[in-house]
Design a protein around this nucleic acid. Sequence first.
DNA 1: CGCGGGACTTGTATTAAAAACA
DNA 2: TGTTTTTAATACAAGTCCCGCG
Length: 544
Amino acid sequence: HKGPVFAPLYEPMPDKVKFYYDGKPMKLSAPAEEVATFFAKMLDHEYTTKDIFRKNFFKDWRKEMTSEEKTKITDLNKCNFSEMNEYFKAQSEARKQMSKEEKQKIKEENERLLQEYGFCLMDNHKERIGNFRIEPPGLFRGRGDHPKMGMLKRRIRPEDIIINCSKDSKHPKPPPGTKWKEVRHDNKVTWLASWTENIQGSIKYIMLNPSSRIKGEKDWQKYETARRLKKCVDRIRTQYRDDWKSKEMRIRQRAVALYFIDKLALRAGNEKEEGETADTVGCCSLRVEHIKLYPKMDEQEYVVEFDFLGKDSIRYYNKIPVEKRVFKNLQLFLENKQPEDDLFDRLNTSILNKHLQELMDGLTAKVFRTYNASITLQQQLKELACPDDSLPAKILSYNRANRAVAILCNHQRAPPKTFEKSMQNLQTKIDEKQNQLSAARKQLKAAKADHKASHDDKSKKAVELKRKAIQRIEEQLMKLQVQATDREENKQIALGTSKLNYLDPRISVAWCKKWDVPIEKIYNKTQREKFAWAIDMAEKDYEF
DNA sequence: CGCGGGACTTGTATTAAAAACA
DNA sequence: TGTTTTTAATACAAGTCCCGCG
């Protein structure tokens, strides 16, 4: 491979674009100005109103200032970035207004870069690289209540990069006048380049695209492991139910946690370093404050209410009735604890996964999520199938099955900003189409009357034509209605994550073959590339 | 057994491109 | 054909899980 592409160097602001401190224009040194532009670009974003973001930004910004600037600029509230902000808006507007030729030129340059840096040779196969560009410097945007939001993500230089390639290959060259941090030849790992990021101190990698052999094989293995779980899941369920009765607390906790992971598709829940990240939890790290127990709620008995922030600070809220034994165990786990105490104080992911490993080779907590997602899709597709359905109706059924999985896995999205409007537009279209339909029906009636009167060939043809027109309008109307239903049901649900990461693609491929649905209706180009192995492999009778 | 480092997968938000529309 | 809306691609953050060490 040719190594990564570095972020473009900083281009100083034109002199006419001013930064103001305390109402007065002030020329910043290049390093201070660069960091200021990161903030200026985000002025319209909610982040810049958050205290922590502002505080972290200001602290890191000051580090880039000259001593003079440091003395002068002491209060972020007195900083006025609005001219800079407007400048960037104008730039982006100008980009949109560029001529066709200019746009074409940029496109060609990107394509050239992709051809040069976007591919590598692995085991004599040309493979697409996933992310060959180094992340540019900027302000860290942590999700949720992140203590480090606003900190400066520093520029990555060749001296920060470790290159991994085979010994006998032509080693990628660093840009002129620079050096790599290291060149190594480790064939036990899949990454091509790596660097240490300065916010969390974690390592970032350049790896291959999902369409690559190495990623595809791993993906396939993942689903094979989940299928092996299918064969022994009954046994495992029997055992954890049995363990609810164990006299050992650690075993009861393990069994109840596993029940949640299985039934609710919760994530494992590793421990996190306090103060380094947003406060989020998974199953093993649930705290007392995250659940409430209701011996009776409405018509149901033994209801557990979950309310916590999971990965990416997405809220998980669910009320579910559980078996009496689980409920009694939970009451026991809660005894003499404070809200901020761990619910499962005798359990962590390492203990749980060690146990799972003993139950089945390769079994870990996340396999349950894969298994339950895939088996749900398969079941739902069977239930929703209707051979006489039109193609759009079949696709709606598929999306509904997909949606059932997304709900199980709690894959949410913020409702699109334009959702209401776009829904209204669609409704208008439906109304119009309905009017069109009734008009067409009237016309048919008239044509029929005409034919009755004249009985000639011409009028007969006219009737046929009107019939066809009605049929076409009816189809269009149905398509629109299906679309509206689909969109409404999808308001806050993200289907992509489960489709890409949890659903054995062979289930979808088989379904397409069985019901004569073109695969392009289910998977777009990228997805077909990623799932090429499955498209090759699965026949219509494939069973997960 | 706890801890930290490391490698890899999963996840949402943002941006760019394509498609639909007027 | 230009504009708006929708969809696809990208970016990069945030998880999981494993391993080696003291």
